[in-house]
Simulated assay, not measured.
Amino acid sequence: MSSILEVSGISVSFDGFRAINNLSFSIGPAELRAIIGPNGAGKSTFMDIVTGKTRPDEGTVTFGERSLNCLRMSEAQIARAGIGRKFQRPTVFEDQTVTENLTLALKASRNPLRVLGWRRKLIDAERIAALAAQVGLADQLARKSGELSHGQKQWLEIGMLLAQEPRVLLVDEPAAGMTLAEREQTTAMLVDMAKTRAVVVVEHDMEFIRRLNCKVTVLHEGSVLAEGSLDHVTMNPAVIDVYLGRG
């Protein structure tokens, strides 16, 4: 299977601490992948590097069929090219409605003149309705985002990322703070999204990961410690020692 995102031999140090150590990672164009590991394993730094927030000391990051060099691109250029990231804490415009949030996120030219003259068309309204339905907010379009539950805000932010039509979606701890029902709906949502794009989920909730039923990459000290099904990696003695514990 060809890769949509290829990270090869990246390393980065902060004040002498090696946060990422010769890390290599790849994901297919329509694949769901979970990343787990103890605190300080390099999970967030990995996502920072892929999205251009942090520059590695060495290694390469390439994206898409044309093997775009992400290390020569700005954060904005990487996002426009098709790599989206959802942080752990949802960041939505709480004084704006769900419709307005999704409208602001729609993929479009950001040229100042285009922005000033922009008017929502029927196709935009249809796209917003489809996005809201995809993330379980079809009946919440008129509500202010600040009135939504924590889980619904998470879904709205995912919807805003989908509005940008990403080909790779990086999702940080989506199950955190959610009710059981919200977590089940989020699981189904992520599985469905991975049918048409690469979805990388960083999560600590092992039951949530089990429901995703996908390949798992375990990071430790900035490197890949193990990779495979959840059952495979959780039986690995090294993973048990550094992450799961023997209790």
Rank of each mutant, 00 (worst) to 15 (best):
30 A>R: 13
47 M>A: 13
120 R>C: 11
6 E>W: 00
116 L>H: 07
36 I>V: 13
219 L>K: 02
88 Q>D: 10
212 L>R: 00
199 V>F: 09
98 V>Q: 02
135 V>P: 05
220 H>P: 02
16 G>D: 00
244 L>E: 00
112 P>V: 09
211 R>T: 09
25 F>C: 02
87 F>R: 05
6 E>G: 01
209 I>W: 00
145 S>Y: 01
202 V>K: 05
101 N>L: 04
91 T>G: 13
188 A>S: 13
133 A>H: 13
54 T>L: 15
205 D>N: 12
234 T>F: 09
219 L>V: 07
79 A>I: 08
41 A>L: 03
221 E>T: 13
224 V>A: 02
237 P>L: 01
190 L>M: 01
167 R>I: 09
107 K>G: 09
1 M>K: 11
184 E>G: 15
42 G>S: 06
118 W>I: 02
215 K>M: 11
197 R>A: 08
145 S>R: 07
131 L>C: 06
175 A>E: 03
119 R>I: 07
198 A>T: 06
92 V>K: 08
185 Q>N: 14
54 T>C: 13
29 P>N: 15
206 M>F: 08
21 N>F: 05
171 V>P: 12
216 V>A: 08
17 F>R: 14
129 A>H: 11
179 T>L: 10
148 L>D: 10
65 E>D: 12
229 S>L: 06
38 P>N: 04
39 N>M: 03
45 T>Q: 03
238 A>Y: 03
177 G>A: 10
71 L>N: 09
124 D>T: 04
8 S>A: 14
242 V>G: 00
38 P>D: 07
190 L>C: 01
205 D>A: 00
169 L>S: 02
155 W>N: 11
171 V>R: 05
152 Q>C: 07
